[in-house]
Design a protein around this nucleic acid. Structure first.
Length: 211
DNA sequence: GGCCAGGCCGGTG
DNA sequence: CACCGGCATGGC
């Protein structure tokens, strides 16, 4: 199992993914996103809202925030947490997520993995998503899909162990990390589901999973 | 109608 | 350290 080989297979199968989606649009092959602070902030909001939640539901919340011109730190600071919770209810866990957004708005330290993890509601995946997709840092994002796909390929490990494997096996390039994580998500959605569709899977030749 | 979604927190053993 | 329940809503 070679991580570069897996990447090539997934890229050949699905092509560029255009992450992170801004305004519900995927700009495939364009790694200049975010282009400004507003896009950067939208990514951070999305990273919080998508915690254990499908992106479809997140889009609904982001649409509502956008219509109310609330993709804006200063404006979000002015509204009540309970009011914010109502606006984002479609993406689930809305009371917690409203608190998480408010906690993030208070954050005023130098942005590092360590300081982001101090924010209530920011675990490793959210912190790493912000570093990679909002700030273009070459930090690999591990998620439940990554763990599922690679455990079936024969690689088990904790968050940190898996991340370390990617960091040591791949060129530290944020564009590569951006695309790779997005391809993992797409592959997990299309084939490597809880109940996997192995017949049509592009990785079946190197996969250990047998149903 | 049940299962699952681009997690994290707080508590327990 | 590993595991668990709670958190909420909508798509399929």
């Amino acid at each position: 199992m070679n991580l570069n080989e897996v990447y090539q297979i997934l890229y050949d199968e699905y092509g560029p993914q255009g992450w992170w989606p801004i305004n519900n649009k995927y700009s495939k092959g364009d790694y200049s996103i975010p282009r400004n602070e507003k896009e950067e902030f939208e990514i951070i909001l999305g990273a919080i809202l998508t915690q254990s939640t499908s992106w479809k539901n997140v889009e609904k919340s982001l649409d509502i925030l956008r219509k109310n011109k609330l993709i804006d730190r200063n404006k979000l600071e002015k509204i009540e947490e309970t009011e914010l919770a109502k606006l984002i209810k479609h993406s689930g866990y809305n009371n917690q997520k409203a608190k998480k957004i408010k906690e993030y708005l208070k954050f005023n330290k130098e942005i590092t993995r360590e300081t982001l993890l101090e924010i209530w509601g920011f675990g490793p995946e959210t912190a790493d998503s912000v570093l990679l997709y909002a700030y273009k840092k070459p930090i690999f994002v591990v998620d439940a899909y990554t763990k599922r796909i690679f455990s079936r390929l024969g690689v088990e490990g904790s968050y940190e162990e898996l991340q370390n494997l990617f960091h040591t096996s791949l060129t530290k390039d944020y564009k590569l990390f951006n695309e790779y994580h997005a391809l993992i998500v797409e592959h997990a959605k299309q084939h490597c589901k809880t109940q996997p569709l192995c017949e049509s899977c592009c990785l079946k030749k190197i996969c250990l999973f047998k149903s």
